[in-house]
Amino acid sequence: MSSDSNVFSSSRYIRIVAYIVLSISALVVLYPILFLVFTSLKDTNGFYTNPFLPTLDVHFENYPQAIQTGKLGLYFMNSVVVAVASVILTVIISVLGGYALGKMKIPGSELIILVFMTFNFIPGIAIYIPLYKMMANMRMLENIFSIILPYVAWQLPFSMYIFKKFFETIPSDLVESGRIDGCSEMQTFMKIVLPLVKPAIATVIVFTFINNWGELMWAQIVTSSSVALKTLPVGLLNFKTEMGVQWGPYAAGLCLVTIPLLVVFAYFQKYFIAGLTQGAVKG
């Protein structure tokens, strides 16, 4: 739907109001982020003399200082390993499960996905307490899989739901033709089905990545006794106290985490939205 020539463009008064309201709101959202960028490039003196606006006196040294003092390099690597591994595993497991539920005539497939989705609403803390003790008993707490595997599990309901919905839109004839041509079920899946499902895979990747990259509570519980496994959200929480009143390096640390995310996801947002909208359009 185009907006340039739509029926609403004749409403001049409300158009002006729309531009004003949306511009002010965009500013309210944008300014704290811009302020962070400005501050990350100032030394302490520059910050106190001119806190609001950018200066020409640019100090890049805040960035290396933030990485060294805050161990941000280590936390960043941990977060990357956790996010990438959990996203890959989630996609593999949920694409298979979604295909089974959407295209393979499993009895009670609607009920199965309903059970998954119902569990999905349960707040994590009602699962973490026994799970933590289970991990401790299995001596898994020093192992990064104690973060990765639960992350995979908790993203499965929504991801399978997306894949199931998507597979249901693929004509059965296409799948049948593979079966008739003598492909095994796995060959049919790999050669015929998988190439069609790329948009759904993109949605699931973006979704699970965002959720796992920012997850705090479970990461906090699991890494409470080991610095080596801490992920970025956990590390950043301590970062503030470590940095004291050094606003420049502190802001630089936050920028390092925020800006790449914003750039990447501004690009991917259509997949994110596509996934969310799936939940609203039933049938």
Binding site: G214, L216, L236, L254, V257
Partner: peptide, 10 residues
């Protein structure tokens, strides 16, 4: 899209 911890720290 920004993790909640980071929003809060900002």
């Amino acid at each position: 899209m920004i993790p909640a911890v980071i929003t809060a720290l900002i």
